[in-house]
Design a protein around this nucleic acid. Structure first.
Lengths: 123, 123
DNA sequence: CCGCATCCTTCTTGATACTG
DNA sequence: CAGTATCAAGAAGGATGCGG
């Protein structure tokens, strides 16, 4: 295999990759991408993402909105309704993750074998 | 833009993406990839990666070795010498990151603008 | 030179209660 | 319904000293 392109400069990986690597961000993006109009309300996201708390969903959505990857739509009804949808940039980052995702699909089992072997050799 | 492929299942993102998103892992992989034979000794890595402590370099290398992305070569000389090099899988994961990396290159400035606007609108 | 052990600080996440 | 506020727990990272 040949070396990667010289443009590869992981300078910017912190803090984009740090954000993407957190516990819930990719899940939220992914769920939105599968929805009608790439748009879901808060309670729907919460139901679909197993184990997420209300607090962490709120924080994750705030960060994504701050970065411009999703948009928040507030409807001052009673009871209130809030919907979130992917922006063009939010759609784009999911596309940019596909290469990594398929690599993980292809290599995860090998990695897990390595981990088992390593752990066995170190008690 | 069209929806991503149905094979996109970010099931495996934790804990691969979590690992890649930590503070030093990608830096280490990247430095190795640029070196002669994709191979460097501990002290060389430490010098090249600005700000990393001996402890964190050791931990990062252990995790990468455990996953099979790098190999550790120990030479029982006096003083001891230890070298690390990328495995085929280690080279592969860098390739898988290129899509994300170039997306970040292209979008980082826009993201930072969004952050400034958001922060200004919320005190 | 390389790495482990220890202690400490900071960040992230979770649990729970409360509000417009 | 969709948050916010508060507190506590755990993980990640940094500083420092010792050892083969």
């Amino acid at each position: 295999m040949e070396k990667h392109s010289p443009q590869f400069r992981p300078i910017s990986f912190n803090g984009i990759c740090t954000r993407l690597g957190d516990k819930w961000t990719v899940q939220v993006l992914w769920r939105l991408s599968l929805a009608q109009d790439r748009r879901l309300r808060f309670s729907a996201l919460r139901k679909e993402i197993d184990g997420i708390t209300q607090r962490m969903l709120t924080l994750t959505l705030r960060n994504l909105e701050r970065d411009g990857l999703i948009m928040r739509h507030y409807f001052p009804e009673v009871p209130p309704r809030v919907e979130y949808d992917l922006t063009e940039m939010g759609i784009g980052v999911l596309g940019a993750l596909e290469g990594l995702n398929s690599w993980i699909q292809n290599n995860l089992s090998v990695i897990e074998q390595h981990r088992q072997i390593y752990d066995r050799n170190n008690q």
